[in-house]
């Protein structure tokens, strides 16, 4: 322990601490604009369909999974090494885990869908930690951003070595100006022409080109809907129309009051599944993103590092939980309801 604070180490430690203090005092990072809906990228639309930054991030995560998959299967050998070895290791770990939960047959059948969801969400979540996410994008006047996304706080800009960046000097649109912009924008919309503010306040807003895919509810709800609908499809395939007995208990079993309530509860729980799956993923990743923003805003140097480690863990954990719940829902759908056994 004593050696740690001697010679070279001491210089490094003092240097790092000094950098933290200097960055805390002098390097000011603007707090990024936090928006719940994904930002539409200005000027990028295909036939009236606005491309959002989360959509680009989703495609990026898709490409990553595809690329790794292709690289893995390019050179296959009986004695695995490199990427193939890693892939087989991952495969075996999760296969044995799923076998513990649902048995060998089901584990084999649903491992592909399990791993697809797991890997896709894993890369979608981890991409958020790559520098450039949420920080590289298109800068536009705060008036335009207010008209399109409802952002009322901009920053002054400056040019550092040819790159335009935001400074920490805020420009806030007041209520009367907001109202003016709204009417101007509505007029421009009605005349079907592009909106240009007649005066600008000098404030600018950054619309990032990339933003973590799971911070868009469209992705998480879509995925949750797919999982729940798929579980019904699996149930129907296994048991035919008998599958719906669990929801229509009173009709089948002759109106026992308890069964009636069980049926209602089962029915509601299907919607609860969609909500809990989607909001768990969305909330965790969105909260992590806000956490990273705020930490970088407080002290730009070194302080965000432990939180990035935390986000690495959270990103994996949420992907894993989503995938394992998918498997569990599929597995539950193949069991006939407990009430069916005794008649």
């Amino acid at each position: 322990m004593r050696k740690l604070f001697q010679g070279k180490n001491l210089i490094v430690i003092i240097g790092v601490l000094g950098a933290v203090v200097v960055s805390a005092l002098f390097v000011k990072v603007p707090l990024p604009t936090i928006l719940l809906p994904a930002e539409k990228i200005p000027g990028l639309q295909i036939g009236g369909f606005h491309i959002t930054n989360t959509l680009i991030a989703t495609l990026l995560a898709d490409l990553t999974v595809l690329l790794i998959g292709l690289l893995t299967v390019r050179k296959m050998s009986a004695v695995p090494k490199g990427l193939q070895n890693l892939a087989e290791w991952v495969f075996e770990i999760f296969e044995s885990m799923l076998t513990d939960i649902g048995g060998k047959e089901k584990a084999r059948a649903w491992l592909p869908i399990f791993l697809t969801i797991l890997l896709f969400l894993l890369f979608a979540n981890w991409w958020e930690l790559v520098p450039g996410f949420d920080s590289v994008g298109i800068i536009e006047p705060v008036e335009v951003a207010y008209a399109q996304n409802g952002v009322s706080r901009g920053y002054e800009i400056e040019s550092v070595a040819g790159i335009v960046t935001l400074t920490d000097r805020q420009v806030i649109l007041d209520k009367t100006r907001q109202h003016e912009i709204k009417t101007e924008f509505a007029a421009a919309e009605a005349a079907d022409e592009e909106y240009h503010p007649h005066e600008t306040s000098g404030g600018y807003v950054l619309t990032p080109l990339l933003r973590a895919a799971a911070t868009d509810l469209n992705l998480t709800i879509g995925l949750a809907l797919f999982v729940v609908l798929m579980s019904h499809a699996i149930g129907v395939r296994k048991m035919g129309l008998k599958y719906f007995r669990r929801f229509l208990m009173p009709v089948i079993t002759g109106m026992k009051p308890i069964d009636f309530f069980v049926g209602i509860l089962e029915f509601i729980s299907e919607f609860a599944k969609i909500i809990s799956l989607s909001f768990r993923l969305f909330g965790n990743i969105f909260a992590g993103q806000v956490l990273l923003f705020v930490m970088a805003f407080l002290v730009a140097f070194l302080l965000p590092l432990p939180f990035m480690g935390l986000e690495l863990f959270v990103g994996f954990m949420q992907a894993f939980v989503f995938a394992i719940l998918t498997f569990i829902y599929f597995e539950q759908a193949t069991h006939s309801h407990a009430g069916d056994e005794h008649h």
Partner: peptide, 8 residues
Amino acid sequence: SIAIYALV
């Protein structure tokens, strides 16, 4: 995740 719902 229950705390996360509150956070959302």
